[in-house]
Design a protein around this nucleic acid. Structure first.
Length: 277
DNA sequence: ACCACAACCTGGCCGC
DNA sequence: TGCGGCCAGGTTGTGG
């Protein structure tokens, strides 16, 4: 489920309840949720720790602990992080419960069991290979152009590659390419300077709008209090098969690119013209 | 470098 | 009601 705007919304929502709190108990309902270390070591190293900070990096949540270690969570497709009062009814998908010192709990709810939790001394063990943050002030259009210039693959799978750029997922990739009027299968190194400029601003615009709208809830996504986002009401192209393009009226098409469902307007997002020999 | 595909899991939806 | 098939916001590994 969650891409950058959803994870950012969750990170913002976790700061008030978590920063300054202490973990007083750890309950693991499904051991494979814990990628590392082993469950017993995780418990030993978490209990008694205070949470100093909650940050987002790409689609990861990074909790800085008083020991200096980092607790890192990836929600994959259907993971949720929820703040509940201790004693609140357990859901069958609450697979990890971190008890806090104020009568509340942080619960990792994961229907599909794809999400993962890591406890590491150095966060770079997990997030060190991620590409740049697209919303960082020092990530410029020129930086983006330089990264694209050496890539021969299709633009959409490249946007989804977290080592290329961190945080963009399937929905926001389609939205950005539509806003920039670029076909998802265009070769990255063939984009014109104008197209790169449009795409750079489109990526940042759709991500910022997603954050303002507290995320996109299609099915599973919820914020830390269990509320849905509203950005699904603002999607321009994603999930709109056969509905009219909001720019030109042409029916939106669905195809598969890089193994992912892909929505685009066949008129506004033309494939590259074949250059005659 | 790049691509296709499978795997990890569960649940919702659709057609029969 | 039930069953098979397809789909799903993500990532990783394998093989070509």
């Amino acid at each position: 489920m969650p891409e950058l705007p959803e994870v950012e919304t969750i990170a913002q929502g976790l700061r008030e309840p978590l920063v300054g709190r202490q973990f007083t108990g750890v309950h693991v309902g499904w051991a494979d949720l814990i990628a590392r270390p082993a469950v017993e070591e995780l418990k030993r190293r978490l209990v008694g720790q205070r949470i100093l900070d909650v940050q987002r990096r790409g689609k990861y949540l990074v909790f800085a602990l008083s020991s200096g270690a980092s607790l890192i969570v990836h929600l994959r497709m259907t993971g949720r992080l929820l703040i509940k009062n201790s004693g609140a009814e357990l859901d069958k998908h609450d697979h990890l419960i971190l008890v806090l010192d104020d009568g509340r709990e942080l619960r990792f709810n994961e229907m599909r069991k794809l999400g993962r939790v890591y406890l590491v001394d150095d966060e770079d063990e997990i997030v060190g290979d991620l590409g740049p943050e697209p919303l960082d002030d020092d990530f410029t259009a020129a930086d983006f152009a330089a990264l694209l210039s050496t890539r021969r693959g299709m633009i959409k799978p490249l946007l989804l590659n977290q080592r290329f750029m961190a945080g963009v997922g399937n929905i926001y990739a389609d939205e950005a390419l539509f806003a920039a009027r670029i076909h998802p299968e265009r070769r990255a190194d063939t984009l014109t300077a104008e197209e790169i400029e449009r795409l750079y601003h489109a990526i940042r615009q759709v991500l910022r709008q997603g954050i303002e709208n507290r995320g996109t809830t299609l099915t599973a996504y919820r914020d830390v209090e269990g509320r849905e986002g509203v950005n699904q009401e603002y999607l321009q192209v994603s999930r709109r098969t056969d509905e009219p393009c909001l720019r030109c009226g042409t029916p939106i098409e669905r195809t598969v690119v890089g193994g992912r469902g892909t929505y685009f307007c066949p008129k506004c997002q033309k494939p590259a013209l074949e250059v005659g020999g």
